[in-house]
Simulated assay, not measured.
Amino acid sequence: MQTQLPVTVTPETRLAEQRLTLTHVAWDTYEKLLDAFGEHRAVRFHYDKGVLELMVPLEDHENPSAVIGMLIFNLAVDCDLTIKSMDSTTLRRKKLQKGAEPDKCFYIQNEPLVRGKTVDLEKDPPPDLVVEIDITHSDVNKNALYAALGIPEFWRFDGKILCILQLQDSEYQEVDVSPTFPWLEKQVIYRFFEECRTLGEAQAMKNFRVWLQSNKPDEG
């Protein structure tokens, strides 16, 4: 039995991402595509009530994703927080007809609840923090998508500006600092980004960890 192809195809190819948007895609078709492509693939899927975006990240997308992920992980470790990193694991809720594969996602506050488990959003809490890099335009409303999935904290980076969003009354509100790391000013994150470009990631991380030892909150 053949699956009917969606009627609208809107490709976009630029420097940081390659995107293809399909409309009128049934949930069953979305799940079949996930199974067909498998886990180890370059393309990432975002699905929202019939709209399916396929995105292939290029270097200008992947590098900031890696840098932000490294920053968050080291923050958690050096501040003695629990953390489970899941990168672009598929997050999906059939009841909501929504699915996403963020660049990075982390369990921090709820890490003990999913430790050692394969996460199932039908049973488990959503990740505490999700990161998305969108240098080019996405046809999927990521704010609405992740809000519906119940992600408490959402970082979005467009290559220049980092936007930190906190879920409040089922909608995201932009905030000045991360709810997870409220003592970390955004200018410190931007300085880390710049040092990664100018000094290299290893030296930038060394500098950041020196700063962190003097500026992280006291235990207890």
Score class of each variant (00 low, 15 high):
K160P: 04
E171T: 09
R191G: 06
D158Y: 08
R197H: 03
Q187E: 13
C163H: 13
S178M: 05
E194Y: 08
S178H: 03
K160I: 10
K206V: 10
F193G: 10
F193R: 09
R209Q: 15
D176E: 11
V210P: 00
P179K: 01
C196S: 08
L199D: 15
Y190P: 05
M205T: 15
Y190V: 08
S214Y: 08
Q213D: 15
A202E: 13
Q213L: 11
G200K: 04
D158N: 15
F192Y: 12
N207V: 07
P179M: 02
N207S: 13
C163T: 14
R156T: 15
W155D: 11
L212G: 10
L199C: 10
F157H: 14
I189Y: 01
Q168Y: 00
F181V: 05
S178C: 06
M205D: 07
I161L: 12
G150R: 04
W183M: 04
S214K: 11
I164P: 00
Y172N: 01
W211V: 07
P152L: 07
R209K: 14
G159L: 08
Q203R: 13
G200D: 07
Q203N: 10
A204E: 09
C163F: 06
F208C: 11
Y190R: 05
F193E: 08
F181G: 02
L162Y: 13
R191E: 14
L165S: 11
I164N: 04
Q166K: 10
V188Q: 14
P152H: 08
I161S: 15
P152F: 06
E185M: 06
L165F: 03
L212M: 08
T180C: 08
W183N: 06
L184H: 09
R156C: 15
D158W: 07
P179T: 04
F157C: 14
L212I: 06
K206Q: 11
Q173R: 07
R197N: 10
V210E: 13
R197F: 00
R156I: 13
E195G: 05
M205Y: 01
Q213E: 15
F157N: 13
Q203F: 02
E194I: 09
C163I: 12
E195M: 09
E201W: 01
S178L: 03
G159I: 08
Y190W: 02
F157K: 13
I161H: 14
G200V: 03
I151P: 00
Q173L: 06
I151K: 05
I151E: 05
P182F: 00
A204P: 01
E185A: 11
Q187T: 12
F181H: 02
T180V: 11
Y172P: 02
R191A: 15
E171Q: 09
P152W: 06
F193T: 09
V188K: 14
E195S: 10
N215C: 06
Q187L: 07
S170R: 04
K186N: 03
Q187Y: 02
D169T: 05
